[in-house]
Nucleic acid binder design. Structure first.
Lengths: 351, 351
DNA sequence: TTGAATTCCGTGCACGGTAACGGAAATTTA
DNA sequence: TAAATTTCCGTTACCGTGCACGGAATTCAA
């Protein structure tokens, strides 16, 4: 029933006058083949357009290949929990036949735990790795080790300057800031004041997606509301009370401000204050579909969220690796910028 | 390396004292097995938690299974072209190992071509079918034939009252109308006038998603802008000039109307008129990411689009069928309401 | 009781590829 | 030149299922 006769390793053996053992050796570059035979086999493979049968290969190999995922521990309600849910999806679907997926987690505030996770990962001898470069420098050196070991890797969320990765899946960060500004202002020109709530970062040398987002945001504002005052308020994610009082103080001084934005996934941190001080005309925009954020969106406290699909990023990363591992196929694009979802209270339910 | 020793059909044969041939016969219910042996085998299968090896199975069978897709012909730039693109995705990815995907197309305005496509489809003896119920009654009877033949099927886009389908993937239509209204008004209360552009339908007994959308839309308006006048204008998709003149006439009479909406994928039909008569304060909302619609969005003529993912619907439908065909696994949910994307000029580029 | 028809089951090959094993041929060494 | 290596290649036994074939055991008919 197949459109064309599937050609097998035996066909190649026959056509070259060699045995399938030899053909297998050239297919997997494991040496012990003379130059002449090698060329002959390669030629016939080209001519016939041979493609190995994945089932047979997997069946013979017996073992499934491991794809390791290196991400921060997914505390409940955090951004990385969303990514982790993609692991199950990737592991579940038929999309990953012959591939096992295993997460290696670390504390995103503890660089030693990161190093530790890297080592554990390498010991597991994965055939491919998915990783999010939180610790920039460490990630680059780790990528070096992977390269040395001949293990392909795919970045998600953001990526370092490196160039040896198989693929990247993430959000266009600058653009997301731009979109964010449009959502915050509702397309209105000449907004006169905006509050940007930011998180104090004590961790060093981390890759910070919010920098690019803020840049995009500010460029939009410059174009559409050049006179706008952009206020900054820094809060500490570990200190809810302090956050609350800081917001109290800030709005005491700027009572007329109607637009509030945060560039990371933690808009939920300021929701308690906002709900204690309701304002019908206020617009609040944040990022990412954490459950706490979604709740606030449903209640109307948050006007809209800009969400990426960390689970899809993981899924696509795994599928890309699977395709590469099982059939040595390179992805069509190295850098894959993914769609940004706009979430409002009216489309959040079927998310 | 596998977590637990994989148990095979031979293990079962040994444990039951029967041969693998017999085990195979009970696994596939193809008879010629005594009641006693059958029970014994089933018992051991339960105990050991046997799961067949997909590779070996596929390898032995040799042929991959066919999943047939029954959709309207995808004229360039039409909604169904988007769905068709999902076929390639489904066929390409490793997601569909062992599964061939083949479209069977018909003219959505010609019921005979639909019947014809149904027959061609059945002759191909598919192991599963994906279908969109455009011709309602015909679809129901066709579903009956599928059921009779023991072929599982999955609905996309919309679904009839039937209950024998394996799964459904589609948009929550009523909700999408609600969301649409929110986008059109930008969250403003007390909009005073809206134009709903509608398409004349000559085809009968078709399932029409726009009915539910309009209902959701009108309920939103009733809640937020009870005084709003909802104007209707019917156009003929085959007559661009007539459309243009009708819009001319209508806006002659209602020059102050700033809100225009369409409930199907053809907002692009009124774009020429809109661009000839620009209005900075106008808001225009439509559905679906046809390329013509996206262009209009980029140019700012259309304010926002509400898009589903017809390609994802097809992909998920195929994967669901694959999972069922290859491993007899039922989908976690029968009815899968999918996310509605809000597209604006600022997030359209990475769509 | 014997032959024929059923029912039920085991055997063995095929599917396409993997990789260990061992041996022939070519090359090097003494 | 014979022996010791090295290079290169064919053979073969799997991997877990599917399925055709044929035979044994049982039931039925005569």
């Amino acid at each position: 029933m197949a459109p064309t006769e599937k050609i097998t390793i035996n066909d190649i053996a026959r056509r070259t006058g060699l045995s399938k053992g030899t053909v297998d050796r050239v297919l997997h570059n494991r040496g012990e083949v003379s130059r002449k035979s090698y060329d002959k086999v390669m030629k016939v493979i080209q001519e016939l357009g041979y493609e190995p049968n994945v089932y047979a290969s997997l069946l013979a190999k017996g073992v499934s290949q491991l794809v390791a995922i290196l991400i921060p521990a997914h505390e409940p309600g955090s951004f990385w929990e969303l990514a982790a849910s993609g692991i199950e999806k990737a592991a579940a679907g038929t999309g990953t036949i012959g591939i096992r997926v295993e997460p290696f987690e670390y504390d995103q505030y503890d660089i030693d735990s990161f190093r530790d996770a890297c080592n554990r990962l390498l010991e597991a001898q994965p055939a491919g790795v998915v990783l999010a470069p939180l610790f920039l420098e460490e990630t680059v050196t780790f990528a070096g080790r992977l390269k040395e070991a001949g293990i392909p890797y795919v970045f998600i969320d953001s990526k370092p300057e490196s160039d040896d990765y198989l693929a990247y899946f993430g959000m266009p960060l600058y653009k997301s800031g731009y979109l964010c500004a449009d959502q915050l202002t509702g397309g209105q020109e000449n907004v006169d004041s905006v509050l940007m709530v930011r998180v104090m970062r004590d961790r060093l040398q981390q890759s910070d997606p919010t920098i690019n987002r803020r840049a995009g945001f500010m460029d939009y504002m410059l174009e559409h509301s050049p006179e706008c005052t952009l206020g900054n308020l820094f809060i500490d994610p570990g200190d809810p009370n302090g956050t609350y009082f800081k917001l109290d103080d800030w709005f005491q001084e700027h009572p007329s401000v109607k637009h509030v934005v945060m560039f990371n996934s933690r808009i939920h941190l300021i929701v308690p204050w906002l709900e204690d001080h309701p304002d019908a005309g206020r617009r609040v925009v944040g990022f990412d579909n954490l459950s706490a954020n979604l709740e606030a969106l449903r209640r109307g406290t948050v006007t809209s969220l800009i969400a990426q699909h960390p689970d899809d990023q993981v899924r696509l990363a795994v599928e890309t690796l699977a395709e590469y591992i099982l059939r040595k196929k390179l992805p069509p694009r190295k850098d894959n910028f993914m769609h940004m979802d706009i979430l409002t209270r009216y489309n959040v339910d079927y998310y």
